[in-house]
């Protein structure tokens, strides 16, 4: 189990790094899907099977497919890929990289202060649903409004 966690973590990390250095959009998307699926595995390991399934179905499935459709609509060809290669110069990475290294050090510094081991307790669909439609009902309604707004906005923006 613990091995599975580290393995999935390594896969997610590698896939994510491949996303941000890839020059081909479709390749990057596939790497991203892999990364998301790996995260789904981690969720499962952490005892959140419902979240894991949603990660696989909604994130890796629906959202990424949406990406893919749009990429096919735009039909970015070889020219874009060459462009990407020209843009991805190493010196471009220095400044942001340093800054982000500092940020990472800070985050880790905060996170490693307490040594607590997690014993995963499985939280099933039932408990989650009770919470969702109990105390979090308002948040659920708001989320639905957000989705509706996103729908309308996307329809309007993508219109010719």
């Amino acid at each position: 189990m613990i091995l599975l966690f580290y393995l999935a973590g390594a896969v997610a990390l590698i896939a994510t790094i491949s996303v941000i250095v890839s020059t081909n959009v479709v390749h990057a998307l596939v790497y991203l899907i892999i990364s998301l699926l790996a995260v789904a595995v981690i969720f499962f390991v952490l005892g959140a099977p419902f979240a894991a399934m949603l990660e696989a179905i909604v994130y890796a499935g629906a959202i990424m497919v949406l990406f893919l459709f749009v990429m096919m609509m735009l039909n970015l060809g070889q020219a874009t890929e060459d462009e990407e290669k020209a843009w991805l110069r190493p010196q471009l990475w220095v400044g942001p990289g340093l800054l982000i290294l500092v940020l990472l050090v800070q985050l880790v510094n905060v996170l490693v202060t307490q040594q607590v081991d997690v014993v995963p307790v499985e939280v099933g669909v039932r408990e989650l649903s009770v919470l969702l439609f109990g105390p979090w009902l308002l948040a659920v309604e708001l989320a639905s409004m957000l989705l509706l707004a996103g729908l309308i906005a996307a329809y309007h923006l993508a219109k010719k």
Binding site: G95, P96, L99, I100, V102, L103, Q106, L107, N109, V110
Partner: peptide, 15 residues
């Protein structure tokens, strides 16, 4: 970048 710079600064002060 300026956003992140600010973030780093604030967290740095906090940490």
């Amino acid at each position: 970048i300026s956003l992140i710079g600010g973030l780093v600064l604030v967290i740095g002060i906090g940490v």
